[in-house]
């Protein structure tokens, strides 16, 4: 089975990139690909608990994240350095997330057959 990773490095509501990334992830998972999400930099904000973007025109992307497990996307990664920079821990995140060191990122990304940037 081919593996595909979505690398998501933008804020959730500043553009549609986060939403496009999650939608692509869900489509890839439904094609039976081995899929993972890597949220980097401001991208980790999409994983925060208790988002309330209902006044904004876009979709609440955090509710889409709840579907990841249902679609078989089990691996979600962030960098410890990013969590630290935003004053967060994995406890603040909506879904189960693995925190890796920035130095492990290149190794992780090279383990996937395909990486798509959003």
């Amino acid at each position: 089975m081919a593996s595909l990773c979505i690398l998501s490095s933008h804020t959730p509501y500043g553009s549609t990139l986060v939403r496009d990334g999650i939608e692509t992830l869900l489509v890839a998972a439904s094609y039976d690909l081995d899929t993972a999400l890597v949220a980097l930099g401001p991208g980790i904000l999409q994983l925060l608990k208790e988002q309330a973007p209902d006044a904004l025109p876009g979709k609440n992307t955090s509710s889409m994240l709840m579907a990841l497990e249902l679609y078989g996307v089990e691996s979600v990664y962030v960098c410890q350095e990013d969590l630290h920079e935003y004053g967060l821990t994995c406890e603040d995140l909506l879904i189960e997330t693995k925190a890796i060191a920035r130095s492990e990122l290149a190794g992780l990304l090279s383990s996937f057959d395909h990486v798509l940037n959003f």
Partner: peptide, 19 residues
């Protein structure tokens, strides 16, 4: 988006030209 995933899996390399 199925066409995006299919194109990615079929290609040797996928290049993203960002916003």
């Amino acid at each position: 988006l199925g066409q995006l995933v299919d194109g990615t899996v079929t290609a040797d390399r996928t290049i993203t030209f960002g916003a």
